[in-house]
Write a protein that binds this DNA or RNA. Structure first.
Lengths: 211, 211
DNA sequence: ACCGGCCGTTCCATCCTGAGCAACAACGGT
DNA sequence: ACCGTTGTTGCTCAGGATGGAACGGCCGGT
C-alpha cells in the first residue's frame, strides 16, 4: 500500500510543522511531485484532516497535533548543522516499503548532485550504509563484503565512501535513531578535503551532536 | 485520489467507534474487500495512526479522538431503533466518489437480502430515493418520472418502494442529515404488513426520531 | 476429538488509477 | 513588460490497488 504510505508521509510532514505549507515546498521536502502532493492535499481537505488557510497554503488539522511525531523539525536542525560545518548536510530517511533505497528528504544549502527527494542506493552510498549498519541484524542481507563493511561502520560509528561511485559526492554519514532507539535514517555531510582523517572526525562529531 | 479517500473512510470509521474493530467487520461497514481493509490497516499501523490491540482487533490511535467526526455511534442507535420497531433497520451512506449507488453501512438484526456492505441503487431503492430527495437540486438529474417521484418524497418526508424491485425487500426510508443540514444518507426500515398506511406512518415517525 | 465456520492473512492476475510530465492562469518581484 | 514563481489540471502509461481464492489458526457445536 505504498500510495497510502506516501500520502501519510505528506500528512505527517504537514503535521510536524505548525506553519502552513505550500504545495511545492511540501513536495520538495517529502520528495514527491507537486501535482501528486496537490491531489493528496485536496483529498485530505475533503476528509477534514487538513485545511487550506488561504489560496496557496495548506495546514494540518489542529486536532492532529496530538499525534505529532517525536522528531522535531529536521530542517531547522539541518540548517544549523550546515552552518556549523560550512558544507552540504543531508538527511536521508527510508520510505516505507521501499526496499533498496533510502530517500533524501531535506538537503539544506543544496545544489550539486545531491538534491532533495532523490533516492540513493542503500549499499553504494555512505548514507545507505550508515542506515543499514543500525538496522537489526535480521533485517540485513547481502554479500560477505557488505556485511563486513557494515561491521566496520558499527565499530567506527560512521560510514564513508572511500571509492566514490559515479555522480555521488564523497560523504560521511552517521545513523540517526528515534527515541526508541530504532534506526530512523542517516545524516550525512559532504567531504571537502578528501581523505583527511581529522576532517572526518570533526564532521562526524558534529553530525552526532545533531541527531 | 479515490484510493486515499477509501483509506481515510476506513480510518474515520475506525475512529468513530472507540471499540476495536475486526478486519472483516470493518470491511463490511465501509463496504470494501477484506484484503483491502487489511492492507490499509497495516499501513496505518506502520505510520502510527492505528494500533492492533490484539491478534485480531485494530483500533484507531487515541490521539485521533480529537478529530472524531460529529456523528455519534450510528450502530448503537440503529440497534435501538430496530428494537423499538421490531424489524430490520438499515442505515445507508454514500461512499465518496461513488456516484450511482448508496452503500448500506450497518444493518442491525440483519439477515435477509439486505446485508451490510452491499451497495443499493440510488434510483430504484427507497433508501436511494430518500437520499436523493434531500440533495441540493443542482446535484440531481434524471428522468421526469424520477424528479417527480423525488418531489413527492420531499412532500411526504419518506420514500417507499411500492413496486418492489427484484431481491429488494419492501422498505420505507427517510433522509438523514448531518448537523450542518446536508444530506448524509438514508435510514430505512423493512415493511411487514405491506401497504398498510398506518404501519408506514408509525415506522416513519420512529425513524425520524432516530436521525 | 472431530469437524464446520469464521477469522486474519497471503498469493496472484487483472485492470484501474495514481504518478509524472507539461502546459496553464494568476501573482509578484525586478 | 518580462520573468520566475506559485497552484492547478489534462493526458498517458506503468505501477500498484483491488478482490477473488486459498491457507492456517481459532473457537463452538456436534
Amino acid at each position: 500500500m505504498q500510495s497510502l504510505s506516501r500520502a501519510l508521509t505528506v500528512l505527517a510532514e504537514l503535521n510536524r510543522e505548525d506553519r502552513p505549507y505550500g504545495v511545492t515546498e511540501l513536495a520538495g521536502v517529502v520528495g514527491l511531485h507537486k501535482s501528486t502532493v496537490h491531489r493528496i492535499l485536496v483529498t485530505f481537505c475533503e476528509h477534514g484532516l487538513a485545511d487550506r488557510v488561504d489560496d496557496h497554503r495548506y495546514t494540518a488539522l489542529d486536532g492532529l497535533a496530538a499525534i505529532r511525531p517525536a522528531e522535531r523539525r529536521p530542517r531547522a536542525e539541518l540548517a544549523d548543522l550546515s552552518d556549523r560545518l560550512g558544507r552540504l548536510v543531508v538527511l536521508a530517511k527510508p520510505l516505507p516499503k521501499t526496499a533498496g533505497t533510502v530517500l533524501q528528504v531535506a538537503a539544506v544549502s543544496g545544489g550539486g548532485s545531491v538534491q532533495p527527494g532523490h533516492a540513493v542506493s542503500l549499499r553504494q552510498s555512505a548514507l545507505g550504509r550508515a542506515y543499514l549498519s543500525a538496522l537489526p541484524a535480521d533485517q540485513i542481507s547481502g554479500t560477505p563484503d557488505l556485511l563486513d563493511a557494515l561491521r566496520r561502520v558499527r565499530v567506527s560509528g560512521f560510514a564513508h565512501n572511500s571509492r566514490p561511485v559515479a555522480s555521488l559526492p564523497r560523504m560521511v554519514a552517521v545513523p540517526v535513531r528515534d527515541r526508541d532507539g530504532r534506526c530512523a535514517g542517516a545524516l550525512g555531510a559532504e567531504l571537502i578535503q578528501t581523505g583527511s582523517i581529522e576532517e572526518v572526525r570533526r564532521v562526524v562529531s558534529v553530525l552526532r551532536s545533531g541527531s
